[in-house]
Amino acid sequence: MLELDHLIAFLPGPPEPPDGLLLDDGTRHVGQGTRNRRIVFARHYVELLWIDEPEVERASGLGFAARCARTAYPFGIVLRGTLPEGRFRRYTVPNGPTLAVHEGDPDMPFLAVAELSDAQLTGLAHRPGPPHPGGATGIVATRLTGAVPPGPTLPGLSITPDGAPSLRLLLDSGPPLVLS
């Protein structure tokens, strides 16, 4: 079983809050050279990520600089559950978990999986985030455009190579969130 953990929008710099949604204070990813702010929901979140230490990011081997500069596909997907078929490598987040990172190409979304058994996934507690001014409490559907699909079937996600790169989220309340 697989489910969405979070989505990533790779940005050239710090973001402005989207209309009707709150951003948390975020985190500096020590050892990765990146920083983020998040739109948090009970079961998922959207990570708005940019580089704040270019030399450290280069050493991480994740290739986020090209995604933030928009010379590679600027969106990513992190799932949790059973690893699907495909080419994956292990990456240990400094002071964090080990993820399986898909060995895709620059035209594919960044894809990683936090491996959990079905029992672990079923027992996973979820915390509601702060209420958003627009009333949204969760993501209903996700569509990535302008991307080559990475291969494995991804739950609740639609990926198409047609159009300019964008991430469209249908939320349970309020207008869709579109990042491009």
Rank of each mutant, 00 (worst) to 15 (best):
R168T: 13
S60C: 00
A147C: 07
P54S: 07
V140L: 10
H44I: 00
L22Q: 06
H29N: 10
P155T: 07
A72G: 03
L49S: 08
I8V: 13
E103M: 14
P15E: 13
A164L: 15
R127V: 11
M1Y: 09
G86W: 01
E3K: 12
I8S: 00
P97S: 08
V46H: 06
A141V: 04
D105C: 11
D19I: 10
F110D: 03
G63P: 00
P155H: 08
F88V: 09
I159G: 02
L83E: 06
A147K: 02
A147H: 02
P133H: 05
R70S: 08
G86C: 02
V148Q: 15
L7G: 02
D107N: 11
R127D: 12
A119P: 01
D172Y: 04
H29M: 10
L7V: 03
D5L: 00
R143G: 00
R127I: 09
G135H: 01
I77K: 07
A66T: 14
L49H: 08
G146K: 02
L99W: 06
R80A: 11
P54E: 07
W50A: 10
R67T: 03
S173L: 01
T142R: 05
I8L: 13
E85Y: 07
P176A: 13
L4Q: 02
G13K: 15
G123Q: 12
E55I: 04
Y45R: 13
E115Y: 06
E53M: 05
G76V: 04
P54T: 07
P152E: 08
G104I: 10
T98C: 11
T71G: 09
P161C: 12
D162A: 13
R90C: 00
A100E: 11
D52H: 14
R168N: 01
N36V: 04
P14I: 12
G163M: 05
F41K: 00
G138R: 07
N95Q: 14
T145G: 04
G163S: 09
I77C: 09
V93L: 15
